[in-house]
Simulated scan of single mutants.
Amino acid sequence: MTWVYPLSDPRVAGRFFDGQSSGGRAACASVVGDQLHLEVSGETRRYSADQVRLGVQVGKASSYLHLADGAVLESLDVPGLQGLSLALKRSGSASWLQRLEVSPRLIVCSLVAVLVFSWLGVVYGVPWLSNQIAHALPVELERHLGEQSLEALDSFWTEPSDLSEGRQQEVLTAMAPYLRAMQQAYPKHPLQLHFRASDDLGANAFALPGGHLVFTDEMVALAQHDEELAAVLAHEVGHVIHRHGLRNVVQSSLLVFVMVSLTGDISAASDITVGLPSLLANLSYQRGMETEADDFALAFLRQQGIAPQRFADIMTRLDPPATKEEEGGAAASRLDSFLSTHPPTPERIQRFQTPD
């Protein structure tokens, strides 16, 4: 199907701006043969089809014909300008880009191609590129970022551990063989274990960039066996080895760049229509990182002769199975899983309960 813009008058009136001064002059445009003829102040300017580009109309504002010498023809007769542009395209001398601008089929195909490549870029390109960038950055930068993150954490979320010196030393002694094994396997990643108290975080453990591993007092108290803490430690070290902290920073920056590139407006990055897809993409990336850390932990536990069930046991206590009353809110539960930064806990537990 071809779109045709009928012209009630083959001549379109408007104002001509030469691109050198702000003043405009009355002008009249028409298509003669394969050229645009523009009558301005008693003289005729001629432009071939590849020297004319139809501007994009915004709302009910005037439309424009952009000319090769930097000049512009502005007119409120939008259908008239579209008709002139289409007549030039039909002359056969238009460039492929100009034909693209007025071809509905090519426009739709281009839109589909942009959407497909954008989706592929967000789903596959951003994680791959962020991984390459994160592993190319020096470990010293990551360590500095981790130290700053730990300072910020201590300023706003955590307090010094309430565990006795004796209990802290017991845990450190129990973890020492596993830390040594990991350090020997990955000498470029120094590991340091920290204990913190936090009512807000509860029973938790997490890895900061640069090998800082933080266990809350509640997490230590939740464990019924040192091997359970070793299983959690292995999971957090998986984050360090795969440089997930740094990758998160890089991915967030790349996502903002992609969204701004697609919208053409940096202020739109905070808009919900742009921010929501970015948020959902980030959640998906983080779930992938948690699975990657679980893979590392599972392999390490088997290598060290620790039953993977240890990880399943402490995870079950950390996130108990839902009761029948809680299962009634199935829709809310599915939404929570969709918006979670972690894979569903039952799936994670089942992985560590499955025999070799």
Rank of each mutant, 00 (worst) to 15 (best):
I306A: 02
S91Y: 00
G23K: 13
D319F: 10
P277Y: 11
E165A: 07
E43G: 11
A181R: 14
L280F: 14
R348T: 04
V123Y: 03
I272G: 08
F206V: 07
P104T: 13
T158A: 13
A205H: 12
G202N: 09
L84Y: 07
L7S: 08
W157P: 01
W3Y: 12
I266W: 14
R310S: 14
D294W: 04
E236T: 07
M289T: 09
V171T: 00
V31K: 01
L115I: 15
A174T: 08
S8G: 11
L38S: 12
L36K: 02
G83A: 00
S8M: 07
S340M: 11
S270K: 13
S41W: 08
L255I: 00
S337C: 09
D154S: 15
R310Q: 15
P177Y: 09
G202R: 13
F206A: 08
N282R: 12
S48D: 09
E159Y: 11
L229R: 02
S62W: 06
A234L: 05
Q98T: 02
T341W: 02
E325M: 04
I314Q: 08
S93M: 03
L120A: 04
Q303I: 04
R243W: 01
R334C: 00
M259Q: 13
E74R: 14
S63R: 15
G275E: 05
S130D: 07
S267T: 15
L179Q: 07
H235G: 00
P308R: 09
G211D: 06
L111V: 14
S41M: 12
E170P: 10
A330D: 05
S164A: 13
L65F: 01
